[in-house]
């Protein structure tokens, strides 16, 4: 049994979503897919090392952190919507990186 392909598939899909989608909610979904891939990787590494309890506790902490990040991101999305009345990143053209 090998779950690494699934982890990398989730990561690839997340990166694809971040690069091609133009909606902030879609961007959030991309970030979430990355986090889910990382959590799955943590659990799978625990199975490989036969120390599931250890990686489960890491995964629990990682999930808690993930929620905090999502909440801050949604607050930013709200602030963005206040300014532009849209969720479209094509409206983000004032700054040129």
């Amino acid at each position: 049994m090998n779950l690494w392909p699934f982890v990398f598939a989730l990561f690839a899909l997340g990166i694809f979503c971040l690069l091609t989608r133009r909606n902030l909610i879609k961007i959030l979904i991309g970030l979430e897919l990355l986090s889910k891939g990382a959590t799955l990787a943590l659990i799978w590494s625990g199975i490989l090392r036969n120390s599931l309890s250890y990686t489960q506790s890491l995964a629990v902490i990682a999930i808690a952190i993930e929620v905090m990040v999502v909440a801050v991101f949604l607050a930013l999305v709200y602030a963005f919507h206040e300014k532009s009345s849209s969720l479209d990143t094509d409206d983000m053209r004032r700054l040129k990186g």
Partner: peptide
């Protein structure tokens, strides 16, 4: 995968809380 604790967390927080917030 034999990780019920992480599963419970993922279900309540990942599927529940984040979805509600979004």
């Amino acid at each position: 995968l034999n990780s019920p604790v992480a599963g419970a967390f993922e279900l309540s927080v990942g599927a529940g809380l984040i979805t509600v917030l979004a």
